[in-house]
Amino acid sequence: MNSTAITIEISDLEYAWPNQGPLLQLKSFTVAAGESLCLLGPSGTGKSTLLSLIAGVLEPQKGRLQVCGSALEALSSHQRDQLRADHIGIIFQMFNLVPYLSVLQNVLLPCRFSPRRRNRFERPESMVEDAKRLLCQLGLDAPDLLSRPVRDLSVGQQQRVAAARAMIGAPELIIADEPTSALDRDNRNRFVRLLQDEAKASGATLLFVTHDQGLASQFDRTVTLDDINHITTPTGTA
């Protein structure tokens, strides 16, 4: 399904926030298609920044970034937005949901921005069916849940809705930025397993960021940011 067999390929990447010293300097970093990778690193080392670069929201000052078969530096910002909409599902640490949309509308949100993900479904109804299926597999099968305002959900439920949203329309790459840090240990392990299973089932690549060493064992591969980043001392705070 993915002919390149490599989902993310980074070479000689350099990034610094405006008016700050260099934060990231990566010689080479690759994530294979279908792989599930855990990216570890202490707070403030630039994990979220790296994810923003991969997602095409930020532009590196230097280097090449190949994501889902496209060289990001060759794309306009609009094309990068479209690439993200079409190929990447993202889960944040918290506040993942748009407060004024229902659970179902939140899950279907990527389909609004991506014709490609929308067109995976023959009919609009099957899009809703798939959203229900994903929510159900993530343990959200209460009948009235779909139309509930997202405010009424617990944090753990919100994170699972976010996972369903990241995976609707089968994107090739799922990026999760510390999605479990607001959950207790039991829920954390269960959530990671669900995410793993779903990603495996759809053949998606999973890039999971955390500073919780305990989760590392559940992934195909674990990478510490400090090991690949040549800027070892994080700027500013300790």
Binding site: V57, R84, V98
Partner: peptide
């Protein structure tokens, strides 16, 4: 969140 699901600055 909107940016994450594919919204551009334009949107």
């Amino acid at each position: 969140v909107l940016r994450a699901v594919g919204a551009g600055p334009r949107h």
